[in-house]
Amino acid sequence: MAPAMPPPVKLSESDLVEKISKGDEIPANFILPVEHRPEVCLTRSSDEIPVVDLAGLDGDKREEVLSVIHKACLEWGFFQVVNHGVDPSVQQYMKDQVEEFLALPVHERAPGGIRKGVASQGYGTGYVKPDTGARDWRDYFLLRTYPESMRDYETWPNRDSFRDAISKYTLEMKKLAEKLLECLSINLGLAPNALKDALGELHQDLLINHYPPCPNPSVAIGANKHTDLGGVTCLWQLDDVVGLQVLKDGEWYPVHPKPGAYIINVADMVEVASNGIYKSIQHRAVVNPAKRRVSIAAFYDLHPDAVVKPIPELVSEERPACPAVRFGDHAMKLAIETDKVGLKVVN
């Protein structure tokens, strides 16, 4: 029988961030029950996860590129893209601002704290999953970026350069996500705007993840297993530390990020709109004992009142329609409540 876990110590949000940033001990709040602890040392390879050169979309390799994306969506739900068209100067600007932000003392990173509520945003420590009762080993900054009226600048660092970088970067992410949705639509035999139209108004979220070194990665997790809620996710990793893992056929595969690439995954609402042809795949992030990991995820999410249902052309007698989903209900069903501030956030 496994020894009982010590009770969580009641610490403030900033104290918890300080503790994981120092990394010299693991507070009980972050220790997973034995049955939920990750297998950290994987021998499996992620070389099969396709790397797609999007430059080919504009030339005579277009059909080949679309075919690779289609196969990746069917078999993995994940792929990496290079030559993606994101302005490298905007990427560098964003990276510089994130690095400057993380170099600040914890109490100076986000004086506005976390804004509570379903549309929460702000800076804090990792989410809590109800089935584990433990926090993810990370601190994060969650921002609502589109529509622009959702931006709560009181929770953002009071730095013009940070806000400017976010605005420029999220516009690039919007364009990339729309390009990818167009590819997926064409691959499904639909009009290029079919998936975008099915998802409705873009509600983009940006999640800056910081996974500090963890003294014992075998008892903690950076991000517990989950699927993403919306349309597609565009993840940019700012370093080469392997942490992301993808679940396929009951096995976890580590993803080795290519320099400058974006890791793309199909999310829940595209699974619904495609009538299950494309699957939203579970993934997680493990932590490293010696190195930090930093990533920026741009989520193509939906208006809470958006109702997504299978696109009619993808429904047949052989493939009956899956149930329609109201995005706000789906988000609330999968909301995660932190153990400290009563904040519900969507993973």
Rank of each mutant, 00 (worst) to 15 (best):
V270Y: 02
A324R: 06
M1W: 09
L206G: 03
V287W: 01
P304S: 10
D301P: 04
R62Y: 13
G124W: 00
C322G: 13
K129T: 11
P259F: 02
Q97S: 10
L32D: 03
V86N: 01
L171Y: 11
A324C: 06
D197V: 12
G122P: 08
D164Y: 05
C41H: 14
I69M: 06
A261Q: 08
D60Y: 13
V98L: 09
H303W: 05
Y262Q: 03
I114P: 00
K168T: 04
K340A: 07
M269P: 03
V255Y: 00
K61W: 11
V287T: 10
C234W: 03
W156L: 07
P310N: 00
V287S: 04
P157R: 05
K340Q: 10
V315D: 05
A306T: 13
I31A: 00
A198T: 00
A306E: 09
V51D: 03
D205V: 12
E313F: 06
L181Q: 11
V242C: 08
P323F: 06
N288I: 06
A298D: 03
D197H: 11
E35H: 15
L195K: 00
F78G: 02
G260K: 00
T233Q: 06
K71A: 14
I208Q: 07
V81I: 12
V345K: 06
E48N: 14
L142V: 14
